[in-house]
């Protein structure tokens, strides 16, 4: 359960988010859409305490994120898997090390169990036997999938995806959408998916928020956003830049 109340954030003079209110309940998969630069990544980073909001409160599992010290944040974060836009793999480490790093720190697994967990995570994203590759040897789509494997390896209750399908070919997009759905279907995971691809929204989300001008412009089901007659929503859904 995530609850965001009156969240505002600006960088210097530049307002990015103003007075956002929404909540995500257990097991939901929520897509947050919006133009580039709308503040989607900033919002997601606020949710795990990487960016401190100027105003407002954020509760994850009824715990207030804003005022947490580092130790308390660590505890919350060990339950959240974050998939970064370009994978954000540590480029001085192999794929296997990227995934085992957090396991060594957050779990009490033995090294054999960690090895197995790494293997299983890579299997989930269809990337077996890549443990010894360096991130520089992977394509963009492979990096994203390893990023997903790293996020799911700690078996989190929340999965946050930052543009998981942006810039990928249609086939890879589909395979990543299926991955997200697969984790979602276990029923134990709450997902927040940032994207500006409507296809991903229709495929995986059961609710969609449109971020526009720092505010939540639309909040509803994917079918509803398709049929909305609001111009801003229409513009985004159809990709027609002449509407507004």
């Amino acid at each position: 359960m995530i609850e965001v109340k009156n969240l505002s954030k600006s960088f210097g003079e530049k307002g990015v988010l103003s007075d956002l209110n929404f909540s995500v309940s257990h097991g939901q998969s929520v897509a947050i859409v919006g133009k580039s630069g709308a503040g989607k990544s900033v919002l997601l980073k606020c949710l795990i305490g990487l960016v401190k909001p100027d105003e407002g409160t954020i509760y994850v599992d009824n715990k207030l994120i804003n005022s947490m010290n580092f130790g308390q944040l660590q505890e919350i974060r060990s339950n959240i898997g974050m998939v970064f836009q370009f994978g954000a793999l540590f480029d001085s480490m192999t794929v296997g090390e990227n995934i085992s790093l957090a396991l060594q720190k957050l779990t009490k697994l033995s090294s054999d169990e960690i090895k197995e967990r790494v293997y299983n995570s890579l299997e989930e994203v269809d990337m077996v036997n890549t443990e010894d590759l360096m991130p520089s040897e992977l394509s963009g789509g492979m990096k994203k999938r390893v990023g997903i494997a790293r996020a799911i390896a700690i078996k989190p209750a929340y999965l946050f995806y930052d543009e998981p399908t942006t810039g990928l070919d249609p086939v890879m997009t589909d395979s990543i959408n299926r991955l997200i759905l697969k984790f979602q279907d276990t029923g134990e995971v709450t997902s927040v998916i940032i994207t500006h691809e409507m296809r991903t929204v229709y495929d995986v989300a059961d609710r969609v928020l449109l971020l526009h001008g720092g505010e939540i412009w639309f909040d509803g089901r994917p079918e509803e956003i398709k049929n909305s007659d609001d111009l801003v929503v229409q513009q985004f859904v159809t990709g027609n830049s002449t509407l507004v």
Binding site: F84, F90, K105, I154
Partner: peptide, 16 residues
């Protein structure tokens, strides 16, 4: 490079 490619954010999100 780790900062601009979000690797530092990733470290932090993994509780480091």
């Amino acid at each position: 490079t780790m900062r601009v490619s979000e690797q530092i954010d990733a470290l932090e999100s993994l509780s480091f």
